[in-house]
Design a protein around this nucleic acid. Structure first.
Lengths: 339, 339
DNA sequence: ATGAAAGCGCTAACAA
DNA sequence: TTGTTAGCGCTTTCAT
C-alpha cells in the first residue's frame, strides 16, 4: 500500500501539499498530485486519519435482532441513507440483551463517530450518556426515558394501534385479545396504550386474561395466542403488536385449526413479507421501514457534519414520527356471534 | 478518554508494562495495572492499535442485498460466529452491482483484516486479488472462477435442485418450467444445471420457452411466471431458484387465479419466512442459513488467527458444502392432466 | 501556496 | 521482568 509519502515523492511536493490537495484545498501542483495518486492507486489509511483527527468515518448500528426481516428492511434503509463515499456501518445485534448492548457499545467506542441505536429498553441509560459526551446518536424506533435531548425516528405507534382498534370495533368486535410487547419498550408500551384507550373510549373492557404481554418474539406470540384460545370464552379478535408475534399467532391459530377470520379475526402491527399472500391475507398496520431507516441515517449524517465542523454546537434534537397506514385485507371480519 | 499513558502513570509503571499486561503477558505489577485500568475505565484506542500493528479487529461483509431475509439470516449467523470480544463486522450491500462492490471493497481496504464476500458474479476478480495479497477471504454462497485458493461455504445447489426435479418427476410432471438465476452466479448456474440434468436423465425435455433465467429478484420471478402462464401450453409445475423469485411466482399465480397445486405445482429453492403458513404451504429445498453464516465466520476467524500469528503461512483453502433438504409440503401434487 | 516538523496512542525492538 | 524509544501514516500548526 502506497503512503502519502510515496505520492508526495512522485509528485515532487511535500506530504502537506498532498494532504491539502486530498482535503479539497486549491494547490498549485494539483495535476501532478492527482497523477501520482492515480498512478500509485493511493488510498489514505483510515486508521492513521482516525488517530490524527479523532474521526473514523464510520457509524455504529445496534439493532435488537438482525435476523428479524423488519430490522433487515431498516438496515437496508440505513444503507441507502449513507452518502456516496467513505462512511461505513458497523453492525451489531444486541439480541435484546442490555448486557450485550453495553459491551457492544464499549467495543465500538473508539471505532465510530456516531450511533444508530434501538435500545433494549426505555430505562437504558447508555444512549443519553453518549449524547452528554457530545457523541451523535439517533434512536431507532425506540425512545429512552428522559431522552428529549436525543434524535429519534419513531412511527405513530399509538395512532396505528388505535386505527387497528377502531377497525375491530367498527366490525362489531367487543371481546378482543391484545398481545403487546414489553412495557418498557416504546413500541410495546405505546401500541398497547393506543389500542386500549380506543377500546376504553367505547366502553369495551379488556379483562386481564385478554391483555397479554409478550417479548416481540415469535414464540411468545404463539404461546400467548394458545393461552387466548384456551380461555373458557375465546376472544373474537386478536391484535398482535409486532411482526414476529403475528407469525406466532398465525401458527397457533393454524395449529388449533381456528378459521380466520370466521372464528377469530387477526390484525397485526407491521406487515409480513408474505402478508398479502396468506390465506386470508393479513390485515395490519403498515409503515415504510426502509424509509424509516433512511431517515435515521440522514439525521445522523447531518449531526455528524455539524459535529465535524463544530458549528452550531447545539443542533436541537429532532423527533420524527412517521405515519402508519391501516391495511385492511382479509384476516378481519365481523364476529360470527355476538355475546 | 484516558490513554495508556494515564494508566501507566497511575499504576506507577511504564507504558510498555501496561501494554504487556493488556496483551496477556505476565507482569509483576499486574494488580496495580488492573486497578488503574478499571479505575480509569481505560479502553485501548483501536485506531492507534491498527496503525501500529496493521490489524483492525474488524471484518468486512459484503452481501448482494441486505434487505433479503435470506441474507438477514446469514448475517445473524455471521454475528453468532464472532468470538466473544472485540471483533467487529462492517456490513455493506452491493445491491448486485459489480461497480458498487468494487468501491465498497476499496473503501473497506484500510479498515478490516478480512472479508466475507458474496461476489456479484463468478467472473469477479476482486476476491482472488485479495487472496493473492494474503488477505483472509471467505466466499459466501457464491464461488468465483479459478477460486480454488479461496475458502468458500456453499450449499449443495445441484443436489438440492436435483431433489426438487426428482420430486416433480415422481409426481408425474413432464412439462416443467424452470426459473433460474443469473448463469454467472454459482447458485444460478448450479441449481439450473442440477435441475435440468435430472430431467434429461429421464428424457424430459425442457423447451426454451420453459427454461427462463431471472435475476434472483422478486420482480423477475413474477414476470417470468407470467410468461410461463401466457404459453399456449402451460407447464404443470414450476421450479424457482431462490426465495425472492418464489415470492414473485406466488404473486403471479395468485394474480392469475391459478390454483396451486391443482393447476400448477410450485417448488422453490430456499424457504420463505411464512412458507409453511401459506395456503398451500410451500414445498421447497431448505437449508440452515444461520448455520451457513456461522460457518463462514468461523472459517474467517480461524484464518485471521493464522494470519496474525504468521503461522503455517499456507492454510489450505477449504470448501464447505452444506446439505440441503427437500421439504415436501402442499404446493406440489400430481399434475391434473397428462398431455 | 508551500514545506518542515510535531504528535495523535500504541506496540515492539532494544537495552538494561 | 522492565523501561526507553522509534515510528506506524496522517493532519495541522507554524514559518516562510
Amino acid at each position: 500500500m502506497p503512503t502519502i509519502q510515496d505520492v508526495a515523492a512522485r509528485a515532487g511536493v511535500s506530504v502537506a501539499t498532498v494532504s491539502r490537495f486530498l482535503s479539497g484545498q486549491t494547490v498549485r501542483s494539483a495535476d501532478a498530485v492527482r497523477e501520482a495518486v492515480d498512478a500509485l492507486g493511493y488510498r489514505p489509511d483510515v486508521a492513521a486519519q482516525a488517530m490524527r483527527t479523532g474521526r473514523h468515518s464510520a457509524v455504529g448500528v445496534i439493532v435488537p435482532d438482525i435476523g428479524n426481516p423488519f430490522f433487515a428492511a431498516i438496515v437496508k434503509g440505513l444503507a441507502q441513507g449513507i452518502p456516496d463515499g467513505g462512511l461505513h456501518m458497523l453492525l451489531a445485534s444486541s439480541e435484546e440483551s442490555a448486557q450485550l448492548e453495553a459491551r457492544l457499545l464499549a467495543d465500538l467506542d473508539s471505532r465510530v463517530d456516531g450511533y444508530v441505536l434501538a435500545p433494549v429498553n426505555e430505562q437504558d441509560r447508555l444512549p443519553l450518556e453518549l449524547v452528554r459526551r457530545g457523541v451523535p446518536v439517533v434512536l431507532l424506533d425506540r425512545e429512552v426515558d428522559g431522552g428529549e435531548d436525543c434524535d429519534v425516528v419513531l412511527v405513530d405507534n399509538a395512532g396505528g394501534a388505535a386505527s387497528a382498534a377502531r377497525h375491530l370495533l367498527d366490525l362489531g368486535h367487543r371481546r378482543i385479545g391484545v398481545i403487546s410487547g414489553p412495557a418498557n419498550t416504546t413500541p410495546g408500551r405505546e401500541r398497547r396504550e393506543g389500542f386500549l384507550s380506543v377500546l376504553a373510549e367505547h366502553d369495551v373492557v379488556v379483562e386481564p386474561g385478554l391483555d397479554l404481554v409478550g417479548d416481540f418474539l415469535e414464540e411468545s406470540g404463539r404461546r400467548l395466542t394458545e393461552q387466548l384460545l384456551a380461555l373458557p370464552e375465546r376472544p373474537t379478535a386478536i391484535f398482535t403488536a409486532n411482526n414476529q408475534m403475528t407469525v406466532g399467532a398465525l401458527r397457533a391459530l393454524q395449529a388449533a385449526s381456528v378459521p380466520v377470520p370466521d372464528e377469530i379475526s387477526l390484525i397485526g402491527f407491521d406487515d409480513l413479507t408474505l402478508g398479502g399472500l396468506l390465506q386470508p391475507p393479513l390485515t395490519c398496520v403498515v409503515r415504510d421501514e426502509v424509509r424509516q431507516g433512511r431517515t435515521v441515517m440522514e439525521l445522523l449524517v447531518e449531526r455528524l457534519g455539524h459535529a465535524r465542523l463544530a458549528e452550531t454546537p447545539q443542533v436541537p434534537p429532532r423527533r420524527v414520527v412517521l405515519e402508519t397506514t391501516l391495511l385492511v385485507r382479509g384476516s378481519t371480519a365481523t364476529p360470527r356471534q355476538e355475546a
